[in-house]
């Protein structure tokens, strides 16, 4: 056996391996990936299908699942008062928060990419908030937003603004959560990805613009922006998915309130599943969420053809 392997390798990789060796290699390969394969079947594939099945049943854990046809879906789309509301709030949160986040991250990255002295230190400062565990982040901001003794309303009062009730106000709770999310994400991974994107822009392009007498804005608009559009697209896709899944911060700081003002989709799903044990109904919510995510991602990929520029592609 050993001799066979040796001669095979000496003969170069172009030579075909004997069938027995190929089989040996295949068996070894399967053994190595088997942890994932088992895990995938048990914790992903099976739950995925089971969730689909459960979404068509009435199941509250105490009894066997009872087939209910489309009842759960009908209930979600036309009977459940909180379904459309939670979906609307979640979308508002994403539609406002994600573009602001991308704009903020890009601004930070552009500033850190100017070769200023102390850039390393600033990068650390910008990055720190994103390292705060979400529960800690929620508690920290709860105290900043505290209407009577918090630092934010104190600072606002100094410039003559009578600050709102923030997390305890129906109008301001959702914006407050967006502010918290921005603080926690703008200087984090998104910014680092933009930085890498910016560093990948060929210097010659800027030099070419300079020779033609183009100013900084022209450089940004016609070189930087197109060159980093794939990076922006990536951040957009991940940002939207992340925003639509918002849960922990809302659960800890507002519990969906006041008056359901921050009752997000996953909070609704969690409550149905693990507070009321409506597992069938919650599974339908999960599948609707999955379909919405896929549709949204697909639409973004479609739309990206009009604004994302890949340098390697022709025209």
């Amino acid at each position: 056996m050993q001799g066979e392997i040796a001669s095979d390798i000496k003969g170069g990789s172009k030579l075909r391996k004997p069938a027995s060796l190929k089989r040996q290699e295949a068996v070894a390969g399967f053994i190595y990936i088997s942890p994932w394969l088992l895990g995938f079947l048990a914790f992903t594939a099976f739950p995925f299908l089971a969730s689909f099945y459960l979404s068509f049943t009435d199941y509250t854990v105490v009894s066997q699942p009872r087939f209910a046809g489309f009842a759960n879906y009908v209930e979600a789309l036309s009977g459940d008062d909180l379904f459309w509301g939670s979906l609307r709030r979640t979308f508002t949160y994403a539609v406002v928060g994600v573009p602001l986040g991308i704009l903020g991250s890009l601004t930070c990255a552009l500033l850190l990419n100017q070769g200023l002295k102390g850039t390393t230190l600033f990068r650390v400062l910008f990055f720190l908030p994103s390292l705060t565990p979400l529960v800690a982040l929620a508690l920290l901001w709860q105290w900043i937003f505290q209407p009577d003794f918090g630092v934010l309303n104190f600072l606002l009062a100094k410039v003559g603004i009578d600050g709102p009730g923030w997390l305890s106000s129906i109008e301001w709770a959702l914006p407050s959560l967006i502010i918290m999310a921005l603080w926690g994400t703008v200087g984090g991974g998104q910014m680092v990805i933009f930085l890498a994107g910016l560093q990948g822009v060929p210097q010659e392009l800027y030099e070419a613009v300079e020779i033609d007498g183009g100013g900084p804005w022209f450089k940004f608009r016609h070189v930087t922006l197109p060159m980093i559009s794939p990076t922006m697209f990536f951040n957009l896709i991940l940002g939207v998915i992340g925003a639509l899944r918002v849960f922990t911060v809302a659960y800890v700081s507002t519990e969906g309130g006041p008056a359901y003002a921050t009752w997000f989709y996953i909070l609704h799903l969690y409550t149905q599943a693990f507070k009321y044990f409506n597992m069938g109904y919650a599974s339908a919510l999960a599948w609707l969420f999955f379909i919405i995510l896929i549709a949204f991602t697909y639409l973004q990929v479609r739309a990206s053809r009009h604004w994302v520029f890949y340098a390697g592609e022709q025209g």
């Binding site: 995938f40 048990a42 914790f43 992903t44 099976f46 739950p47 995925f48 089971a50 969730s51 459960l54 854990v61 998915i241 899944r245 996953i266 799903l269 599943a273 693990f274 597992m279 919650a282 599974s283 999960a286 599948w287 969420f289 999955f290 995510l293 991602t297």
Partner: peptide
């Protein structure tokens, strides 16, 4: 599976572990 939101799997996983 990278793009599969784990919320979709949450309930059956809970039932399996239960």
């Amino acid at each position: 599976t990278m793009i599969l939101p784990f919320e979709v799997l949450l309930i059956p996983q809970f039932l399996i572990f239960r």
